[in-house]
């Protein structure tokens, strides 16, 4: 009668689940805590003085594997510059229907202008609304992000302000030598975002890395932008 015993065992398992814990999160009433490096909707940042960080270099468009970014740079007007560089992003569009949220644009950006947030509710009722333009992507001078439908009950502005993921992606974080350092610049509204927390479980592994893998720890960690900017054209050539 072994098989009957097995049947009964199976029935007991399912019956016990009735009093068990529920795994369902009652979205949108309850939101799950998202991982720190969550890849959500993009924003275009500003410096604390209100200048746009984007310099219209189109590296993001070049890095994009889905070809969803369209950038047209323009020369900065001399009397009222938009960005601190020579040029600025005159047109900046992202087709969210094509975007695969890989954050290669964020890594390619030499000025940390484009970053990713935690917002993922981006459903629209027509295709045109899915193409985000500068008016939605660019944050305000005071640091508040824009949303295409601000009245939408799903438009959670807090998620748009959580923008840590990109910094982890561009930071030389993960290396023990960089722990507690902030290699990113200040942004409007938030200032300098805090450094990445230490990653306790993985530290022993990193510590035993051979020295040649840890080359950068001997250099000055000062200018990560420059090194990334050097790398980006190389990626383009590989394509």
């Amino acid at each position: 009668m072994g098989i009957l015993n097995d049947f009964a065992k199976g029935l007991k398992v399912t019956l016990r689940q009735i009093w068990g814990e529920r795994v369902t999160a009652e979205y949108p009433k309850d939101m799950r805590e998202k991982p720190q490096r969550f890849h959500g909707r993009h924003v275009l940042n500003r410096y604390p003085d209100g200048m746009e960080k984007c310099i219209g270099c189109e590296l993001c468009a070049g890095a994009c594997p889905a070809h969803c970014i369209y950038v047209r740079g323009s020369d900065n007007p001399v009397e009222a510059p938009v960005s601190p560089g020579e040029r600025f992003g005159f047109v900046y569009e992202i087709n969210m229907l094509r975007c695969i949220f890989c954050a290669l644009c964020v890594e390619a950006c030499p000025t940390e202008a484009i970053t990713m947030t935690h917002l993922f509710e981006m459903s629209t009722t027509n295709r045109e609304d899915a193409i985000y333009t500068k008016s939605e992507l660019l944050i305000e001078v005071d640091g508040t992000p824009n949303h295409m439908f601000p009245d939408d009950p799903l438009a959670d502005m807090d998620e748009l302000r959580k923008a840590d993921g990109w910094m982890r992606a561009v930071a030389p974080g993960g290396r023990a030598a960089y722990e507690g350092e902030t290699p990113w610049s200040e942004s409007a509204g938030v200032g300098v975002r805090p450094a990445e927390p230490a990653q306790e479980p993985t530290r022993p592994l990193i510590a035993v890395l051979p020295d040649f893998l840890n080359v950068r720890s001997q250099e000055d960690p000062g200018e990560p932008e420059a090194s990334i900017a050097e790398k980006a054209p190389m990626q383009e050539e590989e394509e």
Partner: peptide, 13 residues
């Protein structure tokens, strides 16, 4: 509802 209960879900609500 019962199926949901037995699979640790909430079911129609």
């Amino acid at each position: 509802k019962i199926n949901a209960d037995m699979t640790n879900r909430i079911g129609p609500n």
